[in-house]
């Protein structure tokens, strides 16, 4: 029985603990390997933009490819596939991650939010509207990642997560241009819309504070 009193225990822990009877809880396999190169398939169930999705996937499938190729949610982009650009940023259980560097099968039970979950052309999220207003995008390819990242950045600041440019680690955080620039630096925009992106995010945050750099 899971230790439900431990508040830091994640839901995945609970599921793993509950489901596992053997020493090593293997993900349910629907095919086994005949040759060393044969793919291993596994099932995974998670929620994407509020909707429960179950997939049987090659274990090698990244969360990014599961979204783009299997669920056909192509708003999340593949820019480098190596965690070097941020175009694949999605929000998992409230936190932004690079979906290219995460296996889909490792997201059992997770809640995933992609750009499609934030808003639609006829029902824009405030960040999406602000990006349009401030022209915070050009080719559009890094844009969904920038917006997902921006949403999480504002939540991180609210939650008091410090950054490299936070002058005093023990002070309350402010939304400054420097803070946004540092925190958004994992999202590369080769078109160079940075200046506009920061203005768009700043507007949604309710304006930028003056800050001093670390």
């Amino acid at each position: 029985m899971a230790d439900t009193e431990d508040l830091s225990l994640s839901r995945r822990d609970l599921m793993a603990a509950g489901a596992a009877s053997a020493a090593i809880a293997g993900a349910p396999a629907t095919a086994s390997a005949a040759t060393p190169d044969a793919p291993h398939l596994a099932q995974v169930t998670f929620k994407v933009n509020g909707q429960k999705r179950s997939l049987t996937l090659d274990t090698r499938t990244t969360l990014l490819d599961a979204l783009r190729e299997h669920l056909r949610l192509t708003g999340t982009k593949k820019g480098c596939d190596h965690g070097q650009c941020g175009a694949c940023t999605v929000i998992v259980d409230g936190r932004r991650i690079n979906s290219c560097l995460s296996l889909a099968v490792m997201h059992e039970g997770d809640e995933i939010t992609t750009i499609e979950g934030l808003g639609a052309p006829d029902k824009l999220h405030p960040l999406q509207a602000a990006f349009i207003k401030h022209d915070g995008y050009q080719c559009g390819y890094c844009t969904p990642g920038q917006i997902c990242s921006a949403k999480a950045v504002l939540d991180e600041i609210k939650a008091g997560v410090p950054s490299h440019v936070t002058a005093d680690l023990t002070d309350a955080l402010k939304v400054t241009a420097e803070e946004l620039r540092e925190r958004m630096s994992g999202n590369i925009c080769r078109c160079g819309a940075y200046s506009n992106i920061v203005e768009a995010i700043g507007e949604v945050a309710g304006g930028l504070s003056k800050g001093e750099m670390a």
Partner: peptide, 18 residues
């Protein structure tokens, strides 16, 4: 990427022994 099997470990010692 080579194909691999995927499993979730329950305890550190069991993970290490596997």
């Amino acid at each position: 990427m080579k194909a691999f099997t995927y499993e979730r470990a329950r305890t550190p010692a069991e993970a290490a022994s596997a």
